[in-house]
Design a protein around this nucleic acid. Sequence first.
DNA 1: AAACTATATCGTAATATTGCAATATATAAA
DNA 2: TTTATATATTGCAATATTACGATATAGTTT
Lengths: 110, 110
Amino acid sequence: MGTTKTEKFSAKQNYMATLIKALGHPARIAIIEYLVKVNQCICNDIVNELSLAQPTISQHLKELKNAGLIKGNIDGNAICYCIDEKSIEKLQNYFAKMSSKLIVNKIKCC
Amino acid sequence: MGTTKTEKFSAKQNYMATLIKALGHPARIAIIEYLVKVNQCICNDIVNELSLAQPTISQHLKELKNAGLIKGNIDGNAICYCIDEKSIEKLQNYFAKMSSKLIVNKIKCC
DNA sequence: AAACTATATCGTAATATTGCAATATATAAA
DNA sequence: TTTATATATTGCAATATTACGATATAGTTT
């Protein structure tokens, strides 16, 4: 009890849920939006931009990275982060497809 | 401690996070995909489609409804659920805008 | 090497989420 | 009006998430 029953859903459904869940927090939305704006930055830039403690930002970055939403490359003693565009494209495609299906099926609800 | 610091983020960021978070679970992804396919249905149809207990489905429907992703209308002794298309459109627009910004800024990361 | 900078990890408290049995509520059908 | 059908709510156990101080790790600068 208490754990998500992933085995009951398709691999695609679980994958999309993971990707979407990683963005389901305002701090991570803010991080992604900041990265879109500045293209690339180091963790400390985000710590200065958002007012959350460094370990908190680090933890959010880890989740975004695990989900495949961002990439991180070592750059001296810092780590340079940027968006993994493919993941955003996947999200865009997912919702675009869903939207078009909704338009086609447009039958008034109930 | 332990609570999301919503006051540190913009209303738009918090709103998008709420909408996205509601979809960040495979059961809710499956419910939405099912609703896209069948256009409208009652709770019991979903209970039969997914293999989760009725109270679990009811709880997921509540979350989807609170986030504004679905609508529910009383229909006899049942409740007819359908997708609120506006919310899906918002998600589509959000990621489409983000994608186009990423294409414009396309500078190799790090 | 010592001091500085940047980030990750550990540990922990507070809180939230997930899933379901039991039960309540409300309409429909017999 | 009893029975059946459909959904919501309550209560609870298991687990996950959020946030951060303290600390570890690793490269940079002086």
